[in-house]
Computed example of a mutant assay.
Amino acid sequence: MRSDDSIAIVLISPCLGDVSHLLSEYSTTTTTTPPPPPRPYRFQYQAGRYPGNVDRVHQEIGDGSGRVQGSYSFVDPKHKVRTVQYAADETGFHASLINYEDTIAQPIDSEAVRLAKEKHFRLYQKIAEANSHGVPVNLPRDSASVGRAKDKHIQLYQKIAEEHAAIANQREAERLAYEATSAINDVNPDHVY
């Protein structure tokens, strides 16, 4: 046997395996393979944007039956380490945030903001009280520039509405003209020509 023949045999021999399981319609026997046992796993890694700098880590453990526990941490743009611990099981995905307090804390109002809010709430209460008794409230009047802007808006709106109506009328006229001059194309699939 030449060396070329042995190479051909080695390359062809894996192709001579049983493929009946791939073509179930040609198979005369049915075999049932039990599922493999659960495969627990565990992984962990660290990474950084440049050598010698770790700015994110991730670790996870799975029992192979669908229950997973893990956590990941990263350094945010404010240079704070943020961590998320999580678990996934038959009841769902459950996460807890660690070192996120500053992201959910409300900012403290400045003195000017505090005074503006108080003024707003007083005015709101006054208007709500008047409305509950049916008393009209003196609403602020439009300035001259606001009045001019409103007039310009209304004129533009009317102009656009008229243009749209003209376009719709033109299209309707074209459709009616087309229908009036077109022959009905009655296609009968059973008719032999």
Score class of each variant (00 low, 15 high):
54 V>N: 08
56 R>Y: 07
15 C>G: 12
135 V>M: 11
23 L>Y: 13
192 V>G: 07
15 C>K: 12
132 S>I: 13
125 Q>C: 10
29 T>L: 14
138 N>E: 09
79 H>G: 03
187 V>E: 12
174 E>D: 09
49 R>D: 01
16 L>R: 12
31 T>Q: 13
189 P>W: 06
15 C>Q: 14
168 A>Q: 05
89 D>K: 05
8 A>H: 11
177 A>R: 06
165 A>M: 15
187 V>A: 14
53 N>G: 10
63 D>G: 03
33 T>E: 13
141 R>A: 10
145 S>L: 11
171 R>E: 13
19 V>Y: 13
161 A>Q: 02
9 I>L: 15
68 V>F: 04
156 L>N: 07
82 R>N: 01
149 A>L: 09
58 H>E: 00
113 V>Y: 15
134 G>N: 05
86 Y>I: 01
163 E>N: 00
172 E>L: 13
48 G>W: 01
57 V>M: 04
44 Q>G: 07
173 A>I: 04
71 S>P: 02
81 V>Q: 03
102 D>Y: 08
97 L>M: 06
41 Y>C: 07
10 V>H: 14
51 P>K: 06
48 G>R: 02
140 P>D: 14
191 H>R: 13
26 Y>S: 12
2 R>M: 11
145 S>R: 10
113 V>I: 11
27 S>T: 11
121 F>P: 15
156 L>I: 05
125 Q>L: 09
86 Y>P: 00
192 V>M: 12
53 N>P: 08
44 Q>R: 13
176 L>M: 04
192 V>K: 13
163 E>P: 02
64 G>F: 04
105 A>D: 03
129 E>F: 04
159 K>E: 02
85 Q>T: 02
148 R>K: 12
42 R>L: 04
51 P>Y: 10
100 Y>F: 14
113 V>R: 11
50 Y>L: 05
170 Q>M: 10
103 T>C: 07
184 I>C: 05
173 A>S: 06
104 I>V: 08
134 G>M: 10
52 G>Q: 06
134 G>A: 08
192 V>S: 09
61 I>G: 05
187 V>S: 15
9 I>Q: 12
108 I>C: 09
5 D>P: 09
84 V>F: 13
179 E>D: 12
14 P>V: 05
133 H>K: 14
163 E>W: 00
88 A>Q: 01
14 P>N: 08
14 P>A: 07
136 P>H: 09
158 Q>I: 04
88 A>W: 00
178 Y>C: 03
187 V>L: 11
120 H>I: 09
